[in-house]
Design a protein around this nucleic acid. Structure first.
Lengths: 354, 354
DNA sequence: AAACGACTTGCAAACGTTTTCCTGTTGGCT
DNA sequence: AGCCAACAGGAAAACGTTTGCAAGTCGTTT
């Protein structure tokens, strides 16, 4: 692969001149400029961005840490982030933690040593352990030689004056969904929640409870049952609820996978949905549109979250490091009403995204 | 962020010694080694991999080019590739073409200038244009300074003596699926194929035809109809076939999205599946398990494709560039029988992957 | 006792850029 | 015609590593 010296030799100029032509950083006479440009074309030269990175202390790479690419949530986030990244001239580095906290800090360290320009941390819905937080905060204080690696978290905001975040008001979304069921006249609503301690799970429970309180409808705390994200767990919990003759007329699920499981349980036990039990999911994954009955769900602007994080990252990188002021961007959810709560709800296959 | 000079100063040694301690490349006395190690810990030093990359002409980054992360096929490929990459110490760079050939060559050029160690090209199911092929072949001839960037294509093999590939025998998979339907006694099988020219689409058609020939069953060429990947197109084609009273008893679809559309069309027109029309999809995406009736589908080892490509990439990078001998790795498909062809077929929700 | 080998360490070059500093040339103004 | 400013272009330093080479210190062998 040709380097800048080859180009300089071919064009009969110094490497400084070649660099200037490429970057337009200083005037070069038309004569030389032409010679350089044709040399570049002949050799198919492109500047080595590793060397550029070393010189500029800047790699134009942004890392995004997720738990797994196979979770559709992250897939959309990545898409949003990548779309914006491409437009702004960054490359995206992706890494998965598979929910291991150790792995997370390891990845962050590795990205730091790779000199990525910034890190989008979309992985930890659980609380971080102290080490991660400490490490990340250290990143913010890297003022030496003007280097610093901004971190933006997704879905939740760290307790820090420095780390930006893009979040969703999950409490409100759960509140809205619960209110919606209450307005439909449902009075015995069960909630299949996320595993204990999951902070988003807790926000959903809070919204669920607040809606009941504000509507003056009592609820049975034993009807808030933790699932483990999976379809099968939703299936099991719902099946138990029904078989043990708990008196319920709606199930609000903390994700769509579990909601699909609940639908399957009702189907097997011949409980009509939505007539006897209405079901609401969370996340509006693709499958929500194609199960039968189709699933009413809360739609999280996943793509937009990734895009917003990347836009914000760019802003931060542009501004003076010393002036950085933390910002928390809150995005809202949408509500997709489908057949699992309203028999006549219609939706079109036409615009499905896979 | 501390650099190697800081460590050297702190430990009172030269930077060469620090480097040797880090890499274990040459014996260092215990005394100095200890001093260096504690300096490293105190400063939280990690070698800058940009500088290392420049020195070694090697970045330990592998790029993977796909059409879109939102397609579950690629998601699984990425997972397989990433799993192996992590184990072998590579980072993964991801880029999307969104099916634009121009974008593809642009991305390859950009990755070359970023000095990635290798490129996995999973994007182009359509034929590449001449430019891309030409460019990629140029990559293979980069012997100067021992640099060369191996390319591995996924799903199809280029007409080149140099470019490795990981492929699927789609013709055989389609043959098997069609034979299966014929053995079930179906005699009027329609095929919703991919857009013209799509090479994988053509392989599926070939398998479809070969099965008919070998079974001595004639088929109606007008029942091979191109869809455009989408659920909606599957829906439309199936709906037309039924409404126009074409005499069919099975539909073999070139992907699951279209198969789901076909199922929805049958549902709307009250054609029982599988009693009147059996439906087989391709790819075994997640949704195949949860539609009702669940969808019989050909399962492509997506994860394994990514993993195999990455393993092969590692092999190539280890071997002597001059000795490189192209290899084409062919993986086989599995067949998932479900309710859309056999009413009593059962599958469990338990092990669903999302 | 002299010489040689083994081992440890440091110096400096190199990787491919960008950019500062400097020199030489041109052109405009008086 | 003489000066100065403006400009074009080259040489060289710098970014953070790794590594070949030289030099120094031992210990061992003849």
């Amino acid at each position: 692969m040709a380097d800048i010296k080859d180009v300089a030799r071919q064009a009969g100029v110094s490497i400084s001149t070649v660099s200037r032509v490429i970057n337009g950083s200083k005037a070069v006479s038309d004569e030389l400029k032409m010679r350089v440009e044709s040399a570049i074309n002949e050799l198919g030269y492109r500047a080595n961005s590793v060397a550029q990175g070393l010189k500029a202390s800047k790699t134009n790479k942004i890392a995004i840490i997720i738990t797994s690419v196979s979770r559709t949530f992250f897939t959309s986030v990545i898409e949003g982030a990548n779309e914006v990244a491409e437009r702004l001239g960054y490359s995206l580095l992706i890494a998965e933690t598979h929910d291991k906290l150790d792995r997370e800090i390891e990845l962050i360290e590795s990205f730091v040593s790779q000199w990525v320009d910034g890190i989008i941390l979309a992985s930890s819905a659980y609380a971080h352990d102290a080490r991660t937080l400490q490490y990340i905060q250290r990143l913010e204080s890297l003022e030496k030689k003007g280097r610093r690696i901004p971190v933006i978290t997704l879905e939740y905001a760290m307790d820090s004056r420095y780390i930006d975040a893009v979040v969703i008001d999950y409490e409100k979304a759960a509140y809205d969904a619960t209110s919606y069921l209450l307005k439909l006249g449902r009075r015995k609503i069960a909630h299949i929640s996320l595993p204990k301690n999951h902070r988003i799970g807790r926000m959903r429970i809070a919204g669920f409870e607040r809606a009941h309180e504000e509507f003056g409808v009592p609820y049975d705390p034993s009807h808030i049952i933790a699932g483990d994200y999976t379809t099968y767990s939703g299936y099991q919990v719902a099946r138990n609820l029904i078989e043990e003759k708990h008196d319920i007329d709606a199930i609000f699920c903390a994700n769509d996978q579990m909601a699909v499981g609940a639908i399957k349980a009702c189907e097997e036990l011949e409980v009509p949905v939505p007539e006897q039990i209405a079901i609401v999911g969370n996340d509006d994954i693709f499958a929500a549109s194609i199960v039968s009955p189709s699933l009413t769900s809360i739609s999280v602007p996943k793509y937009e979250m990734g895009a917003a994080a990347m836009r914000r990252m760019h802003e931060i990188l542009q501004e003076d490091a010393a002036k950085h002021l933390r910002q928390i961007i809150t995005l809202s959810t949408a509500f997709e009403e489908r057949e699992s709560t309203l028999k006549t709800a219609k939706h079109s296959l036409k615009y499905l995204e896979w």
